[in-house]
Structure formats: structure tokens, C-alpha cells
Design a protein around this nucleic acid. Structure first.
Length: 470
DNA sequence: TGGGGTTAT
DNA sequence: ATAACCC
């Protein structure tokens, strides 16, 4: 057993006084409740948890012999991620297999096109965090935001009332900024660092995964600061260093929320870095991008982000896709769809809810603009078919193929030549089973099978139950 | 660039 | 249905 890898210590020590101003504590002579006004003024405390090279870690758990070797995870001809052994040898994320093998002939590659193991581990992480706190939001498979404001408030009160006068930061402080324990915002973030450490310890002890964490007063800043010390470390951001952090981003596209398209439009305006965006006239920005986007990204450029941590709960859609060099006949399309469907139907069956919408997405070959020309058609699933989702997937398969082929013909004239490079099937608009269904014998049999085969914890069970009401 | 996801319009 | 964003 390896111990939990030691974080770097930058502990600060000082006295934690019950109240500033030397006074014992709660004045507030008016009829007003003190705790209400104190709470409304308290800053939020957000943790961003970011697993290290997630797919590679999952593969190393599945096959421990890969542990100490340079390992890459391959999808088609791309190394989508790799472990740190491989990074030492110059392998980067999203490198072509060709370049990677040239750089490092000993690189071991595993195929990661089937996301099932990663998806399962990903939800175990989210569920584990859900045991600490209900406000957990997923971002992709390997990141989670947790709003720990309330946990921090509780611990702060405990600390003050039990006469404890010291708190130590766990992990790094961004910019090496000194902590002022007379500042309750500092103290809250320090307590947040201890909770973040507990998150990472639990994820390592229970799931064997390492990762980074960032603690700050909003989602944007927690995410940015989590990446400052990189594998398996954590960092807090104190408000006084916020501008340093946001301005350290050399390009605006590094700001989460400012993507490829917006970056291009900003470049047209001469906006290249965060400082440019901060200083840019709001009125001009609003005319160029629309009020909503302009105001949001300009706030982001100051490190301001009032978006809440929205619990992700159960997935809103299930999709499966495959890309390929060429698919140019109706028969091939049907074969590809028949390959994608069984896996998808199985996932939906295990979820237990019924999808009411199905969508087919294609990508047509084009030499220019190689990766953005996707088109899709969707339709409601006929009620008689919806009913069958609770049963054997075989009874749904061929009618679904027929529906998907009709959607395909809405996009593509099959009498004309075509050249597809991607097919994707997505089920969405998921609804809980009608409650009358839940009394049936079949329902309970199914629940037991799932509980055993997926080894689900109580958190997911509770999540499922809590949502059946709405 | 893969094979996924989300929300806004 | 698409377009933008995220990983």
C-alpha cells in the first residue's frame, strides 16, 4: 500500500480570534438575526477537483503492470492522454500516434475508444463527492465543482465555539500570499483547503485516483487555480491575488467560457489578452457580441463569475459515436448504426429511465473545415417503443434502426454520392418510469441486478430515489 | 484531433 | 436544429 502522496506543506500559523475588534462577539442589538446578515456577506467557497490524466489512471488501475511504464491512451490515430512517465519523455495530450511513436518507441498504447470504464469511474468520483455535499457539478468526465460554503460555515462556527484558535492551510497558496487569520475570508478559504485535502484523500483511498484541487470564491477562479501545481497537488487563491492569477493567462482562450469562436471575434477587435479585454469599452463589446456574452466574458476577465454550482444529477443524454475514414453507402450506414445501438440500449436499460427523443448526427467529409460540419435530425420516439425500453433491448433494436435510417434519409439523398466521416446516435429527453410501473415485479428484479453488477454506493441510490418525485 | 457531454438561441 | 461552450 502506498501512502497518500504527501502534498507540499506551506502551513501558515497564526491566531484565529473569535471576532475582529477585540470584542467578545455578537453585538447586533437590533431584533435582526446576526447569523443571517453574517451569512449573506460570507464569500462562497468553491472547490474544483481535477483528476490527473484520468483515462491513463483508469487504465493503470485496470492493468497495474502499466504503472511504471510510459502509457498512452489511443483513440483512432490520436494519443488523447498519457501518464506522467510518458510526459517525461515528451508525449503530449492529443499528439498523433505517429509523432508519439517517433518521440518514444517504447510508449505503450491502449485503446480508449470505448469510454465505459472511464464513465463508470467518473461517476464513482462524483458520487463520492456527493457524500460530502449535495452541490456537485460535473465538467466532462474528470472534473467536478463542489460548493462547500455551508460545510465551511459549520466548521468555522465549531472552531470559534470550541475555543480552537489555529488553522493550517493544506497545500499551496497561490503567489505565496501570506494568510491573515483576522480576515474571515482567508480563514474560510483555509478551511476550504482542509476540506479539499479530505476530498483528495477519500478519492485516493476509496478509488485509487490522484488529482488536483483548487479552492477559491467562485467556479472560474477555483478552476484556474487548481491547475497551478500539477500532478496531485492543491492550491488556494486568496482574493488579493485574483488579478495576478487572471492576468497570468497569456491568451484569452485560456479563460474558461471564452472559446474558439469568441476568441476569433475578439482578435478582430484587437483584443489579445486578458488586460485588453478588461480595458475594452463595454458598449463596443456589447454591439459586437451581444449584451449577454459581452457582459459575461468581460466579468470573467476580471475573475468575476456568479454562476452557481449546479448539481449535475443523472445524465441528460446518452450518446455513442464512431468516426471513420469513409462511409458512403446506405448499407454501411445501417451497419454502423447497428454497431452503436446495442451498447447504448444497454446503458439506457441500466439507467432505468425512458428516452423520449432520438437523434442522429453525421459529419460529411470536406477537405477544408475538416471538423465542424455536423448535421443532425431528431424525432420523438413513438410511445409503443418507449414502453419497450424497460425490457430486453432486442425488441427495440430493429424498430430503432428503422427510425434512425429515416432520419438519415432526411439529411442525405441516398441516390446521390455521399461521404461520411462520423455517425452518432443520441437518446435524450429522459423521463422517469410512470410510478405505476414501479410496483411491478420486473422493476424490483431489475434494481437488484443493477445494484450488484455496478456496485453502486448509497449515494447514487439516494440520487435515484430523490429525483423520482419530479 | 476523439468520444463524449451541457446550455443558449 | 444549430451553435456555442466544456473536457
Amino acid at each position: 500500500m502506498e501512502p497518500f502522496p504527501p502534498p507540499t506543506e506551506e502551513d501558515e500559523e497564526d491566531w484565529l480570534r473569535p471576532q475582529p475588534g477585540g470584542g467578545a462577539a455578537p453585538p447586533a442589538p437590533s431584533g435582526h438575526s446576526k447569523s443571517v446578515s453574517a451569512r449573506s456577506t460570507a464569500c462562497r467557497v468553491i472547490v474544483h477537483v481535477d483528476l490527473d490524466c484520468f483515462y491513463a489512471q483508469v487504465e493503470m488501475i485496470r492493468n497495474p503492470e502499466l504503472r511504471d511504464k510510459p502509457l498512452g491512451v489511443q483513440q483512432k490515430y490520436i494519443v488523447v492522454t498519457c501518464n506522467y512517465e510518458a510526459r517525461k519523455l515528451g508525449i503530449k495530450k492529443m499528439m498523433s500516434v505517429k509523432d508519439a511513436k517517433e518521440k518514444c518507441p517504447q510508449l505503450i498504447l491502449v485503446n480508449g475508444e470505448d469510454l465505459t470504464p472511464y464513465r463508470e469511474m467518473s461517476y464513482k468520483v462524483t458520487e463520492l463527492l456527493g457524500e460530502f455535499c449535495p452541490l456537485v457539478e460535473r465538467l466532462g468526465f474528470d472534473e467536478n465543482f463542489v460548493d462547500i460554503t455551508e460545510i465551511v460555515e459549520k466548521r468555522l462556527n465549531q472552531l470559534q465555539q470550541s475555543g480552537c484558535s489555529r488553522v493550517c492551510v493544506s497545500g499551496h497558496v497561490y503567489n505565496h500570499q501570506a494568510i491573515n487569520l483576522l480576515d474571515t475570508t482567508h480563514v474560510r478559504l483555509v478551511i476550504g483547503s482542509q476540506i479539499a485535502e479530505e476530498f483528495r484523500e477519500a478519492i485516493y483511498a476509496r478509488l485509487g485516483l490522484t488529482g488536483c484541487a483548487g479552492v477559491a470564491s467562485n467556479k472560474l477562479l477555483s478552476k484556474l487555480v487548481s491547475g497551478t501545481f500539477k500532478p496531485n497537488q492543491q492550491t488556494i487563491l486568496l482574493p488579493e491575488s485574483c488579478q495576478d492569477l487572471i492576468r497570468s493567462l497569456d491568451h484569452i482562450q485560456k479563460v474558461p467560457g471564452i472559446g474558439y469562436k469568441t476568441t476569433k471575434r475578439l482578435e478582430t477587435l484587437g483584443v489579445r489578452n486578458v488586460c485588453d479585454l478588461q480595458a475594452f469599452p463595454s458598449a463596443v463589446l456589447e454591439k459586437e457580441l451581444g449584451v449577454s456574452i459581452a457582459q459575461r466574458i468581460q466579468k470573467l476577465s476580471y475573475g468575476e463569475d456568479d454562476s452557481p454550482v449546479t448539481p449535475s444529477g443523472l445524465p441528460q443524454s446518452f450518446s455513442d459515436e464512431d468516426s471513420f475514414k469513409k462511409c458512403s453507402s446506405e448499407v454501411e450506414v445501417k451497419e454502423k448504426i447497428e454497431e452503436l445501438l446495442p451498447n447504448l440500449l444497454d446503458r439506457i436499460y441500466k439507467d432505468g429511465r425512458q428516452p423520449h427523443t432520438v437523434r442522429l448526427t453525421i459529419r460529411q467529409f470536406s477537405s477544408t473545415d475538416k471538423w465542424f460540419n455536423r448535421e443532425s435530425r431528431q424525432c420523438p420516439i413513438p410511445p409503443h417503443l418507449i414502453q419497450k425500453f424497460g425490457k430486453e433491448s432486442s425488441s427495440v433494436l430493429s424498430p430503432m434502426v428503422d427510425i434512425l435510417m429515416k432520419l438519415f434519409r432526411k439529411m442525405i439523398d441516398v441516390d446521390q454520392p455521399f461521404h461520411l466521416t462520423l455517425l452518432s446516435v443520441c437518446f435524450s429527453n429522459l423521463k422517469d418510469l410512470p410510478s405505476s410501473k414501479k410496483g411491478s415485479i420486473g422493476f424490483y428484479l431489475k434494481q437488484e441486478v443493477e445494484g450488484v453488477s455496478q456496485g453502486e454506493g448509497s449515494a447514487s441510490w439516494n440520487q435515484n430515489c430523490n429525483r423520482t418525485g419530479t
